[in-house]
Design a binder for these strands. Structure first.
Lengths: 233, 233
DNA sequence: TAGATTGTTAATCGATTAACAATC
DNA sequence: TAGATTGTTAATCGATTAACAATC
């Protein structure tokens, strides 16, 4: 049997029936009133509000935000209202205050250490990306399975062997892993980072991962976006 | 007034109210029965089916696919049924046949030339990514506004000046552009590629673009995914 | 044939929108 | 105060699920 089939049947036996689903309460704790789809919009709001803040824009309102984001004002007001009132009738929202409140909701009022697995083209680009730091994330270590890459510099880091992953995760208190390895290695790497204690994954490999119910995975596959675009061309 | 504010007010005046919305019929042509959210799942189905095909898996069914993807069988059958019956009662789906039918629906039964704007870390990683070719896309030219980068090799290409963009788009019949420039340059670059004749954009810059109603934009911003993950941690 | 799985309908569930009273 | 905009409710819209007849 081909190695791929082994992995494939493992999925059939073990797969969570929720892997790609919106499930706002994956960890089984007390239910949060906000749907997953709303949580996904909060970072987009935050990004636009930070742009306004950088431009010296002190106040905004749901109509203005809606126009900038291509949404409806009602939706934006409703999204915010799920977390309590952020605005003032007749005035709108204080941009700076709104930014801080969204950061608090998303737990971005702290610094999140993340590990990066994979130091190829994509991994290197991620390691060199300067956009993480001021938005709440800090890459604390980079790993690769290829002995030829271990010891090489990548961004501000030196590539480490996979054997040191678990120690690094424990030492830095890492909950988040970025996986940027080839598709055929991604599931095994995911299993390793989860075993090391990681609880959420951002997966750049073009494959759906099989993870336990209490682990959250987000996916980035540019080709999926392109293939959606061609439908409409 | 800060340059950022100019761009910001332009958004307020000109913005399409649909930029981030699901709109399955953006170009105003005859309505297609398939909702945007279904179109977005088809490439995911295709990716998994191609994995099965590579593993020598000849037949599958909605239950098996659902398990591998974390969806429900009913949803998968309903999605397929929007485009006509692909399966056989009692048997399921022929993987190879299904792959071909999904490719046809998504217009992936041809090769799509794309242009890449931006030859920094992200742009270089994109240019070096080998995963586009066998999934329907071919980068035909790479552009950058920085004179120091023009003439430099990136992947299999040589970086060209922005001035040659329009000619390249026309010559290769390009409809798709990948934008991988800094956030503060992205809107201007989007305007340029659209003026050159491009009709859809995959934007890696962390900013919501303002484009006409008949232009479709997909977004990739890894930080948005990370910020969603931290909410649940 | 008997068993299995599709394709499709109707019911359910959830998200968005419209409207407006509350209130700054 | 008058005008503007929020926060919230109810109505609408759309997507998912359950169920099963059709059929391979």
């Amino acid at each position: 049997m081909a190695p791929w089939l082994d992995a494939y049947w493992a999925i059939l036996v073990l797969a969570s029936a929720k892997a790609l689903k919106n499930h706002s309460n994956a960890s089984g704790g007390k239910p949060h009133p906000a749907p997953d789809i709303v949580i996904g919009r909060l970072p987009v709001y935050l990004r636009t509000l930070n742009g306004m803040l950088a431009g010296g824009h002190e106040f905004t309102n749901s109509r203005e935000l809606a126009l900038a984001l291509g949404l409806s004002g009602a939706q934006i007001r409703k999204d915010f209202s799920l977390f309590g009132g952020f605005g003032k009738q007749g005035t709108g929202y204080n941009v700076s205050k709104l930014v801080h409140q969204l950061q608090e909701i998303l737990k971005l009022d702290r610094d999140w250490p993340v590990v990066l697995i994979g130091a190829g083209h994509i991994g290197s680009a991620i390691a060199n990306y300067t956009g993480f730091a001021h938005r709440g994330f800090r890459i604390v270590a980079v790993f690769d399975a290829a002995p030829a890459r271990v010891g090489q510099p990548v961004g501000a880091h030196v590539v480490q062997a996979m054997a040191t992953l678990a120690d690094a995760v424990r030492m830095h208190g890492v909950h988040l892993a970025l996986i940027a390895v080839p598709a055929d290695a991604a599931q095994a790497v995911a299993d390793q980072v989860l075993a090391a204690g990681v609880r959420a994954i951002l997966n750049y490999a073009p494959i759906t991962l099989n993870v336990p119910d209490d682990v959250r995975v987000e996916y980035i596959d540019p080709v999926l976006h392109l293939q959606k675009l061609t439908f409409y061309l």
